[in-house]
């Protein structure tokens, strides 16, 4: 990575479909320059200081706007925010000038030990105040607005008092951040925790939502019941597409990302999924026009 002084200039992400950039696809993306609205990376995959990842990303950034999606900030943890982590993210943000920067509404560390997972926070006033403060700290460090994403969860705390959608909205309203609405995570949680996913959609304000995520999930069966797991290893299912159509209708067209992490298919499969999202977005643009 060259010095931050010769970084990129800001490039806005249009309300179009984009895909997650994974190392297996670097070469093909560079060779074929697919027609997508943007690429999203996992910020931590570029925390290394140089070498292949940055050479590829610089090349791709020259032609596309970027979104940075963080996995490891541990927003909801009671541990102090990692200064090292925030500072490295800031360097990358200053250099690559991503249009969107997001983190998860979850925690992943305690007492310095990291679980490298998106663990659920209780939806309580205490957690809300804590997370609002943390989001503000990060925004102060980066001197940028961030987005927070609703995560999939496999349990609910009995002492949660605030509906998830209201919690997410409150974090955004009180901290000044935006919302990255993961429609698959809404569907997964609605199924796992037995609520109406449309209630979630109805509970967030259109102005706060700056990006939408779509992904595939898996069903795990147990003798005492089944649960949906957010695996990002398959196609977006019909129910999630339907929920996405409703989301776009209600919130208007938003930059939409196809996320795929495990059992990564050919780039063409991701582009097909992005195409489906793009068609829905364009239909909505047409309605608006």
């Amino acid at each position: 990575m060259a010095s931050p002084t010769d970084g990129f200039t800001a490039q806005p992400i249009p309300a179009q479909a984009g895909i997650g950039l994974r190392s297996e696809h670097y070469r093909e993306v560079i060779a074929t320059r697919p027609a997508v609205g943007f690429f999203e990376i996992h910020s931590e995959n570029f925390f290394g200081l140089g070498g292949a990842p940055h050479q590829y990303l610089e090349n791709i950034r020259a032609d596309y706007p970027l979104s940075f999606h963080g996995v490891g900030m541990s927003l909801g943890s009671v541990d102090p925010l990692s200064e090292q982590h925030s500072q490295r993210l800031k360097q990358l943000v200053d250099y690559y000038q991503p249009d969107l920067i997001s983190e998860h509404l979850s925690w992943s560390s305690f007492n310095g030990q990291y679980f490298n997972d998106l663990l659920p926070v209780p939806y309580t006033p205490e957690a809300l105040t804590h997370i609002v403060d943390r989001v503000q700290q990060i925004q102060d460090t980066l001197q940028r607005q961030i987005l927070v994403e609703n995560v999939s969860s496999y349990l609910q705390y009995t002492h949660s008092t605030i509906p998830e959608w209201e919690f997410v909205s409150q974090v955004a309203q009180q901290s000044g951040c935006g919302i990255l609405l993961d429609v698959n995570n809404i569907y997964v949680n609605a199924t796992n925790h037995d609520f109406d996913p449309r209630a979630f959609l109805g509970g967030v304000s259109a102005q706060l939502v700056k990006e939408i995520h779509l992904a595939g999930h898996s069903v795990n069966e147990f003798e005492d019941g089944s649960i949906l797991i957010d695996t990002h290893d398959q196609l977006v299912c019909d129910e999630v597409w339907s929920l996405y159509r409703d989301a776009v209708r209600r919130l208007g067209p938003k930059p939409t990302l196809i996320e795929w992490d495990t059992n990564l298919p050919e780039l063409a499969v991701l582009l097909d999924e992005a195409n489906t999202a793009q068609t829905i977005l364009e239909a909505s643009h047409a309605r608006v026009a």
Partner: peptide, 19 residues
């Protein structure tokens, strides 16, 4: 502290432990 509708709390935490 986890609600046990369907799967019990132990099972739910086991998902995170395995993950």
């Amino acid at each position: 502290w986890v609600s046990a509708n369907g799967l019990n709390g132990d099972r739910r935490i086991q998902i995170y432990r395995n993950n």
